[in-house]
């Protein structure tokens, strides 16, 4: 009754030009990342190569952990919320991170903050951030209300509250304490602690292990909740699992390097236009690799062009801000 699906005359997939194929695009991007990694590792070495490699490879691994966490979680967050100009930071993640650090400095002073065991600090920050999001999410989505929008709104309000509270405390700080704190609050990828790196990498890997098997379900979620439910997706359970994974990944990467606000927004939106497919099996790795390109590129510019005259997060926030404006204006123009 039907044409043989494999019949070449009316193949359901007329082969697009090779450049249009997502696999080819991803491979090209992967090659670019490898080239950038090689440039970063092997050029501009002032002293012994082995020493430089040891330090720089740690930075590259940190970049990979951060790009993976931020890229995957932002794409997932966009799909869950059906909105592509949000980042998980809207839930107050970075604000909460800054608040925790500020409270520590406020209560015990900058000397104690600097003397604080890095691993304990990381651990406390991760646990508190995950607990916060679990609470917010469990209350507003897990309960009877089940509204993602309400949850986002409460997240924004809480984020603003955290920011104001942080600002108030920072104003009361000793100038030296404030200096130490604001220095610590710029995202920094160079010279990460090895143990922290491993711990963060494990958490991010766990997050990915939860998200990757759900990639096809994520594709269906792009149709929106009603259609996804109609197609047999257990929306509530799936969104809970995805959100838990997003929280853990974001918390781990923020506690490792500090807040990177716009970064996820840039890479996710670039990924949608670059990947050549809406499928998460393509958009998520594309976002991760684009993240690597941004971080490596930014770091190279910072180190080799400006001679460390700034921080990476300044460069990224500046570029991210411009890109965000572009996105909003383009949306408005359509």
């Amino acid at each position: 009754m039907l044409a043989d699906p494999a019949a070449p005359a009316r193949s359901p997939r007329t082969r697009p030009a090779s450049w249009a194929r997502p696999g080819v695009r991803l491979a090209v991007l992967g090659a670019v990342v490898l080239v950038l990694v090689a440039v970063y590792l092997f050029t501009g070495v002032p002293g012994r190569l082995a020493f430089a490699l040891e330090i720089r490879s740690l930075t590259v691994v940190a970049m990979l952990v951060v790009s993976t966490a931020v890229g995957v979680s932002t794409v997932v967050f966009h799909t869950i919320t059906q909105n592509r100009i949000l980042t998980p930071s809207i839930m107050g993640f970075d604000a909460f991170y800054v608040l925790i650090s500020t409270v520590i400095v406020f209560v015990s002073g900058s000397a104690a903050f600097l003397a604080f065991d890095e691993i304990t600090l990381w651990f406390v920050q991760v646990v508190v951030m995950v607990a916060f999001s679990a609470l917010l999410f469990g209350w507003l989505f897990g309960g009877k209300r089940r509204s993602i929008h309400l949850m986002l709104l409460v997240g924004i309000v809480l984020g603003t509250f955290f920011r104001s509270f942080t600002e108030w405390m920072q104003r009361m700080l000793d100038p030296l304490d404030f200096q130490v704190l604001s220095d610590a609050m710029f995202a920094s990828l160079t010279r990460p602690d090895e143990t922290l790196l491993v711990l963060s990498a494990v958490l991010v890997a766990l997050g990915c292990a939860a998200v990757v098997p759900l990639r096809r379900t994520l594709d269906v979620l792009t149709l929106g909740e009603p259609a996804a439910v109609g197609l047999g997706v257990d929306h509530r359970r799936v969104v809970m699992a995805l959100f838990a994974a997003v929280s853990v990944m974001i918390a781990a990467s923020t506690a490792l390097v500090g807040p990177i606000l716009f970064f996820g927004l840039i890479v996710a939106n670039l990924a949608y236009s670059y990947a050549g497919s809406f499928r998460h099996a393509w958009t998520m790795p594309t976002a991760v690799l684009l993240g690597m390109v941004c971080l490596l590129g930014g770091q190279l510019v910072l180190e080799r062009v400006f001679g460390y005259g700034g921080t990476l997060s300044t460069v990224i926030d500046f570029a991210g801000g411009l890109f965000f404006l572009y996105l909003v204006l383009r949306k408005g123009a359509r």
């Binding site: 909105n83 592509r84 792009t222 149709l223 929106g224 259609a227 109609g230 949608y272 809406f278």
Partner: peptide
């Protein structure tokens, strides 16, 4: 199977 009134899709399909 249910076809809803509003069918807005954010992604390009």
């Amino acid at each position: 199977a249910v076809l809803r009134q509003e069918n807005h899709v954010a992604a390009r399909l």
